[in-house]
C-alpha cells in the first residue's frame, strides 16, 4: 500500500527492507551508526542527516561505522563486493569522491572487464550532492557527470521518494557498481511510496509532465524547479514536457528523443558545472539524433563555470531557479528562423 513519506524515509526503508530480504547486504560509512568506539548511545546519529537511523539496532554488525578515510572504506566496500557481499557505502558528501577516486574509477569500474567477466562488483555508493545550503565550495558540488563519464559505473540521480526507494533497491540488486546521488535539499520532500519492496529499472526516464511545446530535461532538484517554471509557463499557453532521466548511466535516449521529435524545442537544466556535463552530453545526443526535428537552438540552464560560492546571495544566483528556466523556455518557444 502506498502512503506519503519523505525522500529520506524512502531511502531508509529501502535499506531496511533489502537488508531484511538479503543477508549479504551490509552498510558502511562515517557516523552511519554514530557512537561507535566512544562512550554514549549507539545509533545516536544514523549518519549526518539520520538517513540510516534505526538500522544498527536492527541489523547490528551489518551496519558499520568507518574511520574518516574514504580511500579505506570505499576500497573495503569494493573488495567486499568483489568477494560476495552487497555493501552500501555512504560517502557523506560527493565532494569527497576525490579522496577515493582510484577505488571507484580505476578499480570497481574495471573489475568485470579486466577479469574477463568473471568478477562482479555489486557495490553501491550513496552520496549527498547539490548546492543551496550555504555549505560552500567543498560541500555543494554536483559531480554526477564525472562518474557518468566512466564506463563500468552506473549512476542514479533520484528526484522524488518513489524513485529514491525503487532505484536504490535496484542498485543494491545490480551486479555492477552503482553510485546514487541524493540531493540534500530533497531529503524532506514528500511523495507516495509503496510499503512493499519494488525496483525501478535503470535507463527508463520519467515523463513527469506532458506537454507539446517545449521539452525540458532535468535531474534531481532541477526537476522540481522545472515543474515550477512549467506551471507558470502553462498559464501563458506554453506547455512543457518535463523529462527526468532518473539515471545518467545508462541514459534513456529514446524517451528524450521521442519528446524532442514532438516538440522540436529543448531546454536542459543541470545543477552541475556547465562544461563536459549531462547538459552538454544530452545536448550532443539531441543535436546528432534529432537534428531534423529541432526548431530552435538547444538551451542549457546551468550555473556559471565557477566553484559554488559561499556568500548566500551569490549561491542563490548560482543555482538555476524557476525564473531562469522560464526565460530559457520563452527563448526557445519564441525562436523562429
Amino acid at each position: 500500500m502506498a502512503r506519503t513519506i519523505t525522500y529520506q524515509q524512502a531511502i531508509n526503508e529501502a535499506l531496511d527492507q533489502e537488508m531484511g530480504n538479503d543477508p549479504s547486504v551490509i552498510l558502511m560509512g562515517e557516523d552511519i551508526v554514530g557512537g561507535s568506539g566512544a562512550d554514549g548511545e549507539m545509533d545516536a546519529w544514523g549518519g549526518p542527516l539520520g538517513i540510516t537511523k534505526g538500522l544498527y539496532p536492527k541489523y547490528g554488525d551489518r551496519v558499520m561505522d568507518t574511520p574518516i578515510t574514504e580511500s579505506a572504506f570505499i576500497g573495503a566496500a569494493v573488495g567486499a563486493a568483489a568477494s560476495g557481499l552487497r555493501p552500501v557505502a555512504e560517502l557523506m558528501f560527493s565532494d569527497f569522491m576525490g579522496v577515493c577516486f582510484d577505488q571507484i574509477y580505476n578499480q570497481a569500474a574495471k573489475f568485470r572487464y579486466m577479469f574477463g567477466g568473471k568478477a562482479e562488483t555489486p557495490v553501491v555508493i550513496r552520496t549527498m550532492y547539490g548546492a543551496g545550503i550555504r555549505a560552500a565550495a567543498q560541500h555543494s558540488q554536483s559531480p554526477y557527470s564525472i562518474f557518468t563519464h566512466v564506463p563500468g559505473l552506473k549512476v542514479v540521480v533520484p528526484s522524488n521518494p518513489y524513485d529514491a526507494k525503487g532505484l536504490l533497491i535496484q542498485a543494491i540488486r545490480d551486479n555492477d557498481p552503482v553510485i546514487c546521488f541524493e540531493h540534500k535539499s530533497l531529503y524532506q520532500t514528500e511523495g507516495e511510496v509503496p510499503e512493499e519492496l519494488y525496483t525501478l529499472p535503470f535507463g527508463e526516464a520519467n515523463v513527469v509532465r506532458e506537454g507539446g511545446d517545449v521539452t525540458i530535461i532535468a535531474l534531481g532538484l532541477m526537476v522540481h524547479r522545472s515543474l515550477e517554471a512549467a506551471e507558470t509557463l502553462a498559464a501563458d499557453g506554453i506547455e512543457c514536457e518535463v523529462i527526468d532521466p532518473r539515471t545518467t548511466s545508462p541514459l534513456d535516449d529514446e524517451t528524450i528523443l521521442e519528446s524532442v521529435e514532438s516538440t522540436g524545442r529543448v531546454v536542459i537544466v543541470d545543477e552541475a558545472s556547465p562544461r563536459c556535463s549531462m547538459a552538454t552530453d544530452i545536448s550532443a545526443l539531441i543535436a546528432r539524433d534529432a537534428f531534423g526535428s529541432l526548431e530552435a537552438p538547444i538551451q542549457m540552464v546551468t550555473p556559471p563555470h565557477t566553484p559554488v560560492p559561499f556568500a548566500g546571495s551569490l549561491e542563490d544566483l548560482y543555482v538555476p531557479d524557476a525564473t531562469k528556466i522560464e526565460t530559457a523556455v520563452r527563448q526557445v518557444a519564441g525562436y523562429s528562423r
Binding site: N21, Y162, G166, P194, E196, L197, Y198, T199, L200, V207, E210
Partner: peptide
C-alpha cells in the same frame, strides 16, 4: 495514456 501505463508499471514493479 502515459499515466495509465505508469500506474500499471508501478504495480508490476512490486516484488512478488
Amino acid at each position: 495514456t502515459r499515466r495509465l501505463v505508469d500506474d500499471v508499471l508501478k504495480f508490476k514493479r512490486i516484488d512478488g
